[in-house]
Design a protein around this nucleic acid. Structure first.
Lengths: 217, 217
DNA sequence: ACGTAAACTTGCGTGTACGCATTTTTCCTG
DNA sequence: CAGGAAAAATGCGTACACGCAAGTTTACGT
Protein backbone atom coordinates (compact mmCIF):
# COMPACT_ATOMS: atom_id res chain seq x y z
CA UNK A 1 0.00 0.00 0.00
CA UNK A 2 2.73 2.43 0.93
CA UNK A 3 5.93 2.46 -1.00
CA UNK A 4 8.89 3.20 1.26
CA UNK A 5 9.22 6.97 1.21
CA UNK A 6 11.93 8.13 -1.16
CA UNK A 7 14.74 10.47 -0.40
CA UNK A 8 12.59 13.36 -1.50
CA UNK A 9 9.98 12.81 1.16
CA UNK A 10 12.50 12.03 3.86
CA UNK A 11 14.40 15.23 3.27
CA UNK A 12 11.17 17.15 3.39
CA UNK A 13 10.28 15.69 6.74
CA UNK A 14 13.80 16.31 7.98
CA UNK A 15 13.54 19.96 7.04
CA UNK A 16 10.18 20.21 8.75
CA UNK A 17 11.56 18.57 11.84
CA UNK A 18 14.61 20.83 11.83
CA UNK A 19 12.37 23.89 11.66
CA UNK A 20 10.20 22.60 14.50
CA UNK A 21 13.24 21.87 16.62
CA UNK A 22 14.91 25.19 15.91
CA UNK A 23 11.74 27.16 16.55
CA UNK A 24 11.08 25.53 19.90
CA UNK A 25 14.69 25.71 21.05
CA UNK A 26 15.05 29.38 20.18
CA UNK A 27 11.71 30.21 21.73
CA UNK A 28 12.73 28.55 24.98
CA UNK A 29 16.17 30.09 24.98
CA UNK A 30 15.36 33.72 24.35
CA UNK A 31 11.62 33.93 24.84
CA UNK A 32 8.96 33.61 22.15
CA UNK A 33 8.99 37.28 21.22
CA UNK A 34 12.70 37.40 20.52
CA UNK A 35 12.59 34.90 17.70
CA UNK A 36 12.14 35.95 14.11
CA UNK A 37 11.40 33.72 11.18
CA UNK A 38 14.81 34.61 9.84
CA UNK A 39 16.42 33.22 12.99
CA UNK A 40 14.53 29.96 12.79
CA UNK A 41 15.33 29.53 9.13
CA UNK A 42 18.99 30.20 9.71
CA UNK A 43 19.15 27.76 12.62
CA UNK A 44 17.51 25.11 10.46
CA UNK A 45 19.79 25.83 7.53
CA UNK A 46 17.19 26.98 5.04
CA UNK A 47 16.11 30.29 3.58
CA UNK A 48 13.29 32.31 5.14
CA UNK A 49 11.31 31.77 1.98
CA UNK A 50 11.51 28.02 2.47
CA UNK A 51 10.31 28.41 6.02
CA UNK A 52 7.09 29.83 4.68
CA UNK A 53 6.68 26.87 2.39
CA UNK A 54 6.35 24.77 5.51
CA UNK A 55 4.65 27.05 8.01
CA UNK A 56 2.23 29.86 7.34
CA UNK A 57 3.09 31.79 10.47
CA UNK A 58 5.83 32.21 13.00
CA UNK A 59 3.80 30.54 15.71
CA UNK A 60 2.94 27.42 13.77
CA UNK A 61 6.47 26.10 13.86
CA UNK A 62 6.71 26.42 17.63
CA UNK A 63 3.32 24.89 18.21
CA UNK A 64 3.91 22.07 15.76
CA UNK A 65 6.81 20.94 17.90
CA UNK A 66 4.20 19.97 20.48
CA UNK A 67 1.43 18.75 18.24
CA UNK A 68 3.65 16.90 15.74
CA UNK A 69 1.56 14.14 14.18
CA UNK A 70 -1.17 14.08 16.77
CA UNK A 71 -3.88 13.76 14.11
CA UNK A 72 -2.53 10.49 12.80
CA UNK A 73 -2.05 9.12 16.30
CA UNK A 74 -5.63 9.89 17.27
CA UNK A 75 -6.99 8.18 14.18
CA UNK A 76 -4.78 5.16 14.82
CA UNK A 77 -5.89 5.05 18.44
CA UNK A 78 -9.53 4.92 17.38
CA UNK A 79 -9.03 2.01 15.03
CA UNK A 80 -6.96 0.29 17.70
CA UNK A 81 -10.01 -0.07 19.94
CA UNK A 82 -11.82 -3.41 19.74
CA UNK A 83 -14.83 -3.36 17.45
CA UNK A 84 -17.19 -4.00 20.33
CA UNK A 85 -16.91 -0.68 22.16
CA UNK A 86 -19.26 2.16 21.41
CA UNK A 87 -17.92 4.52 18.80
CA UNK A 88 -18.39 7.40 21.21
CA UNK A 89 -16.18 5.74 23.79
CA UNK A 90 -13.56 4.76 21.27
CA UNK A 91 -13.22 8.32 20.04
CA UNK A 92 -13.28 9.85 23.51
CA UNK A 93 -10.67 7.46 24.83
CA UNK A 94 -8.45 8.02 21.82
CA UNK A 95 -8.63 11.78 22.19
CA UNK A 96 -7.97 11.75 25.92
CA UNK A 97 -5.11 9.34 25.46
CA UNK A 98 -3.35 11.36 22.79
CA UNK A 99 -3.76 14.68 24.53
CA UNK A 100 -2.51 13.54 27.91
CA UNK A 101 0.25 11.04 27.10
CA UNK A 102 2.74 13.81 26.78
CA UNK A 103 6.47 13.69 27.18
CA UNK A 104 8.85 15.79 29.22
CA UNK A 105 9.73 18.11 26.42
CA UNK A 106 6.15 18.66 25.30
CA UNK A 107 5.14 19.62 28.80
CA UNK A 108 7.74 22.37 28.86
CA UNK A 109 6.62 23.58 25.44
CA UNK A 110 2.99 23.65 26.55
CA UNK A 111 3.94 25.86 29.46
CA UNK A 112 5.62 28.20 27.03
CA UNK A 113 2.55 28.25 24.81
CA UNK A 114 0.26 29.31 27.61
CA UNK A 115 2.27 32.48 28.11
CA UNK A 116 1.45 34.11 24.77
CA UNK A 117 -1.93 34.71 23.24
CA UNK A 118 -0.67 34.23 19.70
CA UNK A 119 0.76 30.85 20.64
CA UNK A 120 -2.41 29.79 22.42
CA UNK A 121 -4.43 30.67 19.35
CA UNK A 122 -2.10 28.77 17.07
CA UNK A 123 -2.31 25.80 19.42
CA UNK A 124 -6.10 25.86 19.45
CA UNK A 125 -6.12 26.05 15.68
CA UNK A 126 -4.36 22.71 15.47
CA UNK A 127 -7.45 20.96 16.80
CA UNK A 128 -8.96 21.37 13.36
CA UNK A 129 -6.27 19.11 11.97
CA UNK A 130 -7.78 16.05 13.59
CA UNK A 131 -10.93 16.45 11.55
CA UNK A 132 -9.91 14.76 8.27
CA UNK A 133 -8.40 11.61 9.82
CA UNK A 134 -11.27 11.38 12.29
CA UNK A 135 -13.72 11.67 9.42
CA UNK A 136 -12.03 8.74 7.74
CA UNK A 137 -12.10 6.39 10.72
CA UNK A 138 -15.65 7.31 11.67
CA UNK A 139 -16.82 6.85 8.11
CA UNK A 140 -15.28 3.42 8.12
CA UNK A 141 -17.29 2.40 11.16
CA UNK A 142 -20.52 3.91 9.83
CA UNK A 143 -20.33 2.50 6.34
CA UNK A 144 -20.68 4.32 3.06
CA UNK A 145 -24.15 5.64 3.72
CA UNK A 146 -22.92 7.70 6.66
CA UNK A 147 -20.24 9.71 4.93
CA UNK A 148 -21.91 13.04 5.55
CA UNK A 149 -22.72 12.09 9.13
CA UNK A 150 -19.10 11.14 9.68
CA UNK A 151 -17.96 14.54 8.53
CA UNK A 152 -20.34 16.32 10.86
CA UNK A 153 -19.44 14.15 13.82
CA UNK A 154 -15.72 14.53 13.24
CA UNK A 155 -16.08 18.28 12.99
CA UNK A 156 -18.12 18.29 16.19
CA UNK A 157 -15.44 16.33 17.98
CA UNK A 158 -12.81 18.79 16.83
CA UNK A 159 -14.99 21.60 18.11
CA UNK A 160 -15.51 19.86 21.45
CA UNK A 161 -11.78 19.31 21.84
CA UNK A 162 -11.15 22.95 21.09
CA UNK A 163 -13.64 24.00 23.75
CA UNK A 164 -12.05 21.65 26.26
CA UNK A 165 -8.61 23.05 25.52
CA UNK A 166 -9.91 26.60 25.81
CA UNK A 167 -11.30 25.86 29.22
CA UNK A 168 -8.14 24.14 30.30
CA UNK A 169 -5.89 26.91 29.05
CA UNK A 170 -8.04 29.47 30.77
CA UNK A 171 -7.76 27.58 34.03
CA UNK A 172 -4.03 27.11 33.57
CA UNK A 173 -3.45 30.70 32.63
CA UNK A 174 -5.01 32.45 35.59
CA UNK A 175 -4.96 30.09 38.51
CA UNK A 176 -6.39 32.73 40.77
CA UNK A 177 -9.86 32.44 39.26
CA UNK A 178 -10.14 28.96 40.74
CA UNK A 179 -11.13 30.39 44.09
CA UNK A 180 -12.94 33.40 42.76
CA UNK A 181 -16.41 31.93 43.10
CA UNK A 182 -17.97 29.85 45.80
CA UNK A 183 -20.47 27.25 44.62
CA UNK A 184 -20.57 28.00 40.89
CA UNK A 185 -18.43 24.94 40.34
CA UNK A 186 -21.41 23.01 39.03
CA UNK A 187 -21.49 25.02 35.86
CA UNK A 188 -17.93 24.84 34.61
CA UNK A 189 -15.85 21.70 35.10
CA UNK A 190 -12.53 23.53 35.00
CA UNK A 191 -10.81 20.37 36.11
CA UNK A 192 -7.91 18.45 34.64
CA UNK A 193 -7.47 18.14 30.92
CA UNK A 194 -8.88 14.60 30.71
CA UNK A 195 -11.93 15.73 32.68
CA UNK A 196 -12.42 18.71 30.40
CA UNK A 197 -12.15 16.52 27.32
CA UNK A 198 -14.61 13.93 28.60
CA UNK A 199 -17.06 16.61 29.68
CA UNK A 200 -16.92 18.27 26.29
CA UNK A 201 -17.40 14.98 24.48
CA UNK A 202 -20.33 13.85 26.59
CA UNK A 203 -23.02 15.96 24.89
CA UNK A 204 -22.13 14.39 21.55
CA UNK A 205 -22.61 10.82 22.74
CA UNK A 206 -26.30 10.62 21.76
CA UNK A 207 -25.44 11.73 18.24
CA UNK A 208 -22.78 9.05 17.94
CA UNK A 209 -25.08 6.39 19.33
CA UNK A 210 -27.86 7.29 16.92
CA UNK A 211 -25.50 7.25 13.97
CA UNK A 212 -24.06 3.91 15.00
CA UNK A 213 -27.51 2.45 15.57
CA UNK A 214 -28.80 3.47 12.17
CA UNK A 215 -26.19 1.31 10.46
CA UNK A 216 -26.50 -1.83 12.59
CA UNK A 217 -30.18 -2.40 13.51
CA UNK B 1 -31.48 47.60 28.48
CA UNK B 2 -29.67 49.26 25.62
CA UNK B 3 -28.94 52.95 25.68
CA UNK B 4 -29.36 54.52 22.25
CA UNK B 5 -25.96 54.24 20.60
CA UNK B 6 -23.98 57.45 20.81
CA UNK B 7 -22.23 59.30 18.06
CA UNK B 8 -19.10 57.32 18.68
CA UNK B 9 -20.68 53.98 17.95
CA UNK B 10 -22.66 55.24 14.97
CA UNK B 11 -19.58 56.65 13.31
CA UNK B 12 -17.81 53.39 13.87
CA UNK B 13 -20.55 51.44 12.19
CA UNK B 14 -20.64 53.95 9.36
CA UNK B 15 -16.93 53.49 8.76
CA UNK B 16 -17.31 49.73 8.83
CA UNK B 17 -20.18 49.93 6.40
CA UNK B 18 -18.25 52.28 4.11
CA UNK B 19 -15.35 49.83 4.03
CA UNK B 20 -17.67 46.92 3.28
CA UNK B 21 -19.35 48.85 0.52
CA UNK B 22 -16.11 50.08 -1.02
CA UNK B 23 -14.52 46.65 -0.88
CA UNK B 24 -17.41 44.93 -2.58
CA UNK B 25 -17.88 47.61 -5.21
CA UNK B 26 -14.24 47.69 -6.17
CA UNK B 27 -14.04 43.92 -6.23
CA UNK B 28 -17.00 43.72 -8.59
CA UNK B 29 -15.74 46.53 -10.78
CA UNK B 30 -12.17 45.46 -11.39
CA UNK B 31 -12.05 41.89 -10.17
CA UNK B 32 -11.07 40.73 -6.68
CA UNK B 33 -7.35 40.52 -7.43
CA UNK B 34 -7.07 44.09 -8.63
CA UNK B 35 -8.09 45.62 -5.33
CA UNK B 36 -5.55 46.57 -2.71
CA UNK B 37 -6.24 47.51 0.86
CA UNK B 38 -4.99 50.97 0.04
CA UNK B 39 -7.69 51.33 -2.63
CA UNK B 40 -10.46 50.25 -0.31
CA UNK B 41 -9.27 52.57 2.43
CA UNK B 42 -9.05 55.48 0.05
CA UNK B 43 -12.50 54.83 -1.34
CA UNK B 44 -13.88 54.73 2.19
CA UNK B 45 -12.02 57.87 3.21
CA UNK B 46 -9.81 56.37 5.90
CA UNK B 47 -6.17 55.43 6.20
CA UNK B 48 -4.95 51.91 5.40
CA UNK B 49 -3.99 51.57 9.04
CA UNK B 50 -7.58 52.19 10.06
CA UNK B 51 -8.74 49.58 7.62
CA UNK B 52 -6.78 47.02 9.58
CA UNK B 53 -8.43 48.15 12.78
CA UNK B 54 -11.67 46.90 11.29
CA UNK B 55 -10.64 43.94 9.16
CA UNK B 56 -7.72 41.60 9.68
CA UNK B 57 -7.37 40.70 6.03
CA UNK B 58 -8.18 42.00 2.60
CA UNK B 59 -10.81 39.35 2.01
CA UNK B 60 -12.75 39.93 5.21
CA UNK B 61 -14.10 43.26 4.06
CA UNK B 62 -15.47 41.83 0.83
CA UNK B 63 -16.98 38.82 2.53
CA UNK B 64 -18.46 40.85 5.35
CA UNK B 65 -20.52 42.74 2.80
CA UNK B 66 -22.44 39.49 2.36
CA UNK B 67 -22.43 38.16 5.88
CA UNK B 68 -23.08 41.49 7.64
CA UNK B 69 -24.74 40.76 10.96
CA UNK B 70 -25.86 37.24 10.19
CA UNK B 71 -24.82 35.99 13.62
CA UNK B 72 -27.23 38.29 15.42
CA UNK B 73 -30.05 37.49 12.99
CA UNK B 74 -29.64 33.77 13.52
CA UNK B 75 -29.72 34.11 17.28
CA UNK B 76 -32.80 36.32 17.05
CA UNK B 77 -34.49 33.84 14.74
CA UNK B 78 -33.97 31.06 17.25
CA UNK B 79 -35.53 32.97 20.10
CA UNK B 80 -38.36 33.99 17.79
CA UNK B 81 -39.55 30.38 17.54
CA UNK B 82 -42.35 29.41 19.90
CA UNK B 83 -41.14 27.68 23.04
CA UNK B 84 -42.93 24.49 22.10
CA UNK B 85 -40.81 23.40 19.15
CA UNK B 86 -37.82 21.16 19.60
CA UNK B 87 -34.60 23.05 20.06
CA UNK B 88 -33.07 21.15 17.18
CA UNK B 89 -35.82 22.30 14.85
CA UNK B 90 -35.67 25.85 16.06
CA UNK B 91 -31.97 26.08 15.39
CA UNK B 92 -32.14 24.33 12.04
CA UNK B 93 -34.98 26.50 10.83
CA UNK B 94 -33.22 29.65 11.98
CA UNK B 95 -30.02 28.71 10.20
CA UNK B 96 -31.74 27.74 6.97
CA UNK B 97 -33.80 30.89 7.06
CA UNK B 98 -30.87 33.23 7.53
CA UNK B 99 -28.67 31.58 4.95
CA UNK B 100 -31.26 31.48 2.20
CA UNK B 101 -33.20 34.69 2.61
CA UNK B 102 -30.69 36.56 0.56
CA UNK B 103 -31.11 39.75 -1.41
CA UNK B 104 -30.22 40.66 -4.94
CA UNK B 105 -26.93 42.23 -4.08
CA UNK B 106 -25.81 39.44 -1.81
CA UNK B 107 -26.44 36.90 -4.52
CA UNK B 108 -24.10 38.73 -6.85
CA UNK B 109 -21.46 38.95 -4.14
CA UNK B 110 -21.75 35.24 -3.42
CA UNK B 111 -21.09 34.52 -7.06
CA UNK B 112 -17.99 36.63 -6.84
CA UNK B 113 -16.86 34.81 -3.72
CA UNK B 114 -17.06 31.42 -5.36
CA UNK B 115 -14.52 32.46 -7.96
CA UNK B 116 -11.54 32.84 -5.61
CA UNK B 117 -10.19 30.36 -3.11
CA UNK B 118 -9.11 33.05 -0.68
CA UNK B 119 -12.61 34.51 -0.68
CA UNK B 120 -14.25 31.13 -0.24
CA UNK B 121 -12.02 30.44 2.75
CA UNK B 122 -12.80 33.80 4.30
CA UNK B 123 -16.48 33.14 3.75
CA UNK B 124 -16.31 29.73 5.39
CA UNK B 125 -14.47 31.26 8.32
CA UNK B 126 -17.44 33.49 9.05
CA UNK B 127 -19.46 30.46 10.11
CA UNK B 128 -17.49 30.47 13.34
CA UNK B 129 -19.02 33.85 14.16
CA UNK B 130 -22.41 32.33 14.83
CA UNK B 131 -21.00 30.31 17.70
CA UNK B 132 -21.09 32.87 20.54
CA UNK B 133 -24.66 34.11 19.96
CA UNK B 134 -25.84 30.55 19.39
CA UNK B 135 -24.20 29.50 22.62
CA UNK B 136 -26.13 32.22 24.42
CA UNK B 137 -29.56 31.29 23.08
CA UNK B 138 -29.02 27.57 23.52
CA UNK B 139 -27.78 28.09 27.06
CA UNK B 140 -30.92 30.04 27.79
CA UNK B 141 -33.10 27.14 26.73
CA UNK B 142 -31.02 24.57 28.59
CA UNK B 143 -30.72 26.44 31.86
CA UNK B 144 -27.63 27.19 33.85
CA UNK B 145 -26.60 23.58 34.31
CA UNK B 146 -26.13 23.12 30.58
CA UNK B 147 -23.65 25.89 29.91
CA UNK B 148 -20.89 23.60 28.77
CA UNK B 149 -23.30 21.54 26.71
CA UNK B 150 -24.55 24.69 25.06
CA UNK B 151 -21.05 25.62 24.02
CA UNK B 152 -20.39 22.21 22.50
CA UNK B 153 -23.71 22.15 20.67
CA UNK B 154 -23.26 25.65 19.31
CA UNK B 155 -19.79 24.80 18.10
CA UNK B 156 -21.12 21.65 16.49
CA UNK B 157 -23.80 23.63 14.69
CA UNK B 158 -21.19 26.02 13.39
CA UNK B 159 -19.15 23.07 12.19
CA UNK B 160 -22.18 21.51 10.51
CA UNK B 161 -23.01 24.77 8.76
CA UNK B 162 -19.44 25.04 7.55
CA UNK B 163 -19.60 21.53 6.12
CA UNK B 164 -22.88 22.30 4.41
CA UNK B 165 -21.43 25.43 2.86
CA UNK B 166 -18.34 23.57 1.74
CA UNK B 167 -20.49 21.02 -0.02
CA UNK B 168 -22.62 23.68 -1.58
CA UNK B 169 -19.68 25.74 -2.74
CA UNK B 170 -18.07 22.67 -4.21
CA UNK B 171 -21.24 21.91 -6.13
CA UNK B 172 -21.58 25.50 -7.24
CA UNK B 173 -17.96 25.84 -8.22
CA UNK B 174 -17.68 22.97 -10.65
CA UNK B 175 -21.11 22.30 -12.03
CA UNK B 176 -19.73 19.64 -14.33
CA UNK B 177 -19.24 17.20 -11.48
CA UNK B 178 -23.01 17.00 -11.12
CA UNK B 179 -23.21 14.57 -14.02
CA UNK B 180 -19.90 12.88 -13.41
CA UNK B 181 -21.32 9.93 -11.50
CA UNK B 182 -24.37 7.84 -12.07
CA UNK B 183 -26.03 6.51 -8.94
CA UNK B 184 -23.61 7.67 -6.28
CA UNK B 185 -26.08 10.35 -5.32
CA UNK B 186 -27.05 8.48 -2.20
CA UNK B 187 -23.78 9.28 -0.50
CA UNK B 188 -23.49 13.03 -0.97
CA UNK B 189 -26.57 15.22 -0.93
CA UNK B 190 -25.05 17.94 -3.11
CA UNK B 191 -28.47 19.53 -3.42
CA UNK B 192 -29.66 23.03 -2.76
CA UNK B 193 -28.28 25.02 0.13
CA UNK B 194 -31.30 24.45 2.40
CA UNK B 195 -31.04 20.73 1.74
CA UNK B 196 -27.34 20.73 2.52
CA UNK B 197 -27.94 22.62 5.74
CA UNK B 198 -30.72 20.33 6.91
CA UNK B 199 -28.71 17.23 6.02
CA UNK B 200 -25.71 18.50 7.97
CA UNK B 201 -27.82 19.38 10.99
CA UNK B 202 -29.66 16.06 11.09
CA UNK B 203 -26.90 14.02 12.77
CA UNK B 204 -26.85 16.48 15.65
CA UNK B 205 -30.56 16.15 16.43
CA UNK B 206 -30.12 13.31 18.96
CA UNK B 207 -27.59 15.35 20.89
CA UNK B 208 -29.97 18.31 21.04
CA UNK B 209 -32.87 16.11 22.08
CA UNK B 210 -30.87 14.49 24.85
CA UNK B 211 -29.69 17.83 26.16
CA UNK B 212 -33.20 19.24 26.09
CA UNK B 213 -34.60 16.17 27.78
CA UNK B 214 -32.12 16.27 30.62
CA UNK B 215 -33.40 19.67 31.70
CA UNK B 216 -37.16 19.05 31.43
CA UNK B 217 -37.98 15.47 32.45
C1' DA C 1 -19.75 74.71 30.22
C1' DC C 2 -15.43 73.00 30.95
C1' DG C 3 -11.85 69.78 31.49
C1' DT C 4 -10.35 65.27 31.75
C1' DA C 5 -10.33 60.49 30.59
C1' DA C 6 -11.26 57.12 27.29
C1' DA C 7 -11.75 55.66 22.62
C1' DC C 8 -10.61 56.11 17.82
C1' DT C 9 -7.59 57.42 14.00
C1' DT C 10 -3.25 57.96 11.89
C1' DG C 11 1.89 57.84 10.51
C1' DC C 12 5.73 55.19 10.91
C1' DG C 13 8.63 51.23 11.21
C1' DT C 14 9.35 46.31 11.31
C1' DG C 15 8.31 41.72 10.41
C1' DT C 16 5.64 38.42 7.92
C1' DA C 17 3.08 36.27 3.71
C1' DC C 18 3.31 35.05 -0.86
C1' DG C 19 3.51 35.31 -6.16
C1' DC C 20 6.81 34.76 -9.68
C1' DA C 21 10.96 33.44 -12.02
C1' DT C 22 15.20 30.87 -11.56
C1' DT C 23 18.20 27.39 -9.92
C1' DT C 24 19.05 23.02 -7.73
C1' DT C 25 17.75 18.40 -6.47
C1' DT C 26 15.23 14.13 -6.91
C1' DC C 27 12.87 10.85 -9.61
C1' DC C 28 11.64 7.95 -13.44
C1' DT C 29 11.87 5.94 -18.01
C1' DG C 30 13.92 4.47 -22.06
C1' DC D 1 23.07 5.50 -17.01
C1' DA D 2 21.82 9.21 -19.34
C1' DG D 3 18.51 12.96 -19.76
C1' DG D 4 14.37 15.08 -19.18
C1' DA D 5 10.23 15.85 -16.20
C1' DA D 6 8.67 17.00 -11.69
C1' DA D 7 9.29 18.87 -7.35
C1' DA D 8 11.55 21.67 -4.11
C1' DA D 9 14.54 25.61 -2.60
C1' DT D 10 15.81 30.21 -3.24
C1' DG D 11 16.04 35.36 -4.40
C1' DC D 12 13.42 39.15 -5.12
C1' DG D 13 9.71 42.33 -5.01
C1' DT D 14 5.27 43.72 -3.26
C1' DA D 15 1.57 43.91 -0.18
C1' DC D 16 -0.37 43.01 4.26
C1' DA D 17 -0.48 42.76 9.64
C1' DC D 18 0.40 45.07 13.63
C1' DG D 19 2.90 47.39 17.70
C1' DC D 20 3.85 51.88 19.19
C1' DA D 21 3.47 56.66 19.90
C1' DA D 22 1.53 60.64 18.66
C1' DG D 23 -2.76 63.48 17.52
C1' DT D 24 -7.86 63.93 17.38
C1' DT D 25 -12.57 63.25 18.69
C1' DT D 26 -16.26 61.72 21.81
C1' DA D 27 -18.18 60.96 26.35
C1' DC D 28 -19.06 62.11 31.02
C1' DG D 29 -18.70 64.00 35.61
C1' DT D 30 -18.49 68.28 38.42
Amino acid sequence: MTTPPGLRERKKQATREALREAALRLAVERGPDQVRVEDIAEAAGVSPRTYNNYFASREQAIVSAVTADREARIAAAVTARPAGVRLTDAVTQAVVEQYTNTGEREQQALLLITTRTALRDAFLDTTADIEPPLTAVIAERLGDTGAQTARVLAASVAAAVRIALEGWLRAAGNAEAAEGFGAGGLVVPSGSLPDQLRAAMAPLAPAFDAAERSTQP
